[in-house]
Amino acid sequence: MQILKTLALVALVAGCSAETQGNMRYILATYDKDSLKHYTIHDQSWRIFDNTDAGKMMITSSINQGVIEGSKRGLTYGLAKKKWREEAEFRPAAEAYLANKGCKPTGGRLLLDGQYEFDYSC
């Protein structure tokens, strides 16, 4: 099974830019599936990977929402506007999630389309 996962990752990364490959390696090294939390705010579901030891969290839309947005882009041959590329699209959910922990975001960056990372302090 591990061989299949490795082959799938190699195939995926082979078609990506060096920056995307680096970001994917960073994500895999920084976040694990055990840090996944599901969070809903204003009828929008989010997946949050929280690395409390590092004071970092990565936020991304739900899988269903990601599929919907990907389909829109595919059906319009890439003409539909990409969502979830700007900090302002992620910040309200990140702030609300972090506020529940008594924390605040201190900085952030887009890692991949639809995946944004925030540093935070508590």
Score class of each variant (00 low, 15 high):
Ser71Ala: 14
Met57Thr: 05
Asp34Pro: 00
Thr20Cys: 08
Arg25Ser: 15
Asp32Ile: 03
Ile63Gly: 03
His38Thr: 14
Gln44Gly: 05
Asn64Leu: 14
Ile48Gly: 02
Cys16Leu: 14
Ser62Tyr: 03
Gly102Arg: 05
Ala80Arg: 13
Ile68Pro: 03
Ser35Gly: 03
Ile63Val: 14
Arg91His: 06
Glu95Cys: 08
Met57Gly: 03
Met58Ser: 06
Asp34Lys: 15
His42Gln: 13
Thr76Cys: 07
Asp34Leu: 14
Lys37Gln: 15
Gln65Ser: 12
Lys56Met: 12
Tyr97Glu: 00
Gln65Leu: 15
Ile68Cys: 05
His42Cys: 09
Thr60Gln: 09
Ala80Gly: 02
Gly66Phe: 05
Trp46Glu: 11
Ile48Met: 04
Gly15Trp: 14
Ala96Trp: 05
Lys33Gly: 15
Leu28Glu: 12
Gly66Asp: 01
Thr30Asp: 09
Glu95Trp: 01
Arg85Val: 13
Thr52Phe: 08
Ala29Tyr: 09
His38Leu: 13
Gly22Ala: 13
Gly22Met: 05
Trp46His: 01
Arg109Gly: 07
Tyr97Asp: 01
Arg85Asp: 06
Gly108Cys: 03
Ala88His: 12
Arg85Cys: 05
Tyr77Lys: 13
Ser61Thr: 11
Leu98Tyr: 11
Thr30Pro: 07
Tyr31Gly: 00
Gly78Ser: 01
His38Ile: 14
Leu36Thr: 08
Gly66Gln: 07
Gly74Glu: 08
Gln44Ile: 14
Gly70Val: 04
Lys104Gln: 13
Glu95Phe: 06
Lys37Cys: 10
Ala80Lys: 12
Arg85Gly: 12
Thr60Glu: 10
Gly70Cys: 09
Leu98Ile: 07
Leu110Met: 11
Asp43Met: 12
Leu110Gln: 11
Asn64Met: 15
Gly55Asp: 06
Glu87Met: 10
Glu69Ile: 04
Arg25Asp: 11
Ala96Lys: 06
Thr52Pro: 09
His38Asn: 09
Gln44Tyr: 11
Ala99Asp: 12
Gly66His: 01
Arg73Val: 04
Arg85Trp: 13
Gly55Tyr: 09
Ser62Pro: 06
Ala88Ile: 06
Lys33Leu: 15
Gln44Met: 15
Asp50Ile: 03
Ser62Thr: 03
Pro105Ala: 03
Cys103Phe: 05
Ala93Ile: 00
Asn51Cys: 04
Glu19Lys: 13
Glu95Tyr: 03
Gly78Arg: 09
Ser17Trp: 04
Lys72Ser: 04
Ala80Tyr: 07
Ile68Trp: 10
Ile68Val: 11
Arg47Val: 05
Cys16Asn: 12
Arg47Gly: 05
Thr60Asp: 00
Lys72Gln: 13
Tyr26Gln: 07
Gln21Val: 11
Leu98Gly: 00
Ile27Gly: 02
Lys33Val: 15
Met24Phe: 13
Gln65Gly: 04
Asn64Gly: 11
Thr20Arg: 12
Phe49Lys: 04
Ser35Thr: 08
Ala99Phe: 02
Trp84Ile: 05
Asp50Ala: 01
Trp46Asn: 06
Lys56Tyr: 07
Phe49Met: 04
Leu36Ala: 14
Glu19Pro: 00
Lys37Pro: 06
Arg47Lys: 14
Cys16Tyr: 11
Ser62Ile: 09
Val67Phe: 03
Lys56Cys: 08
Phe90Gln: 05
Arg73Asn: 10
Lys104Glu: 12
Thr76Pro: 04
Gly108Pro: 00
Thr20Glu: 10
Gly107Arg: 06
Lys83Val: 06
Thr30Tyr: 06
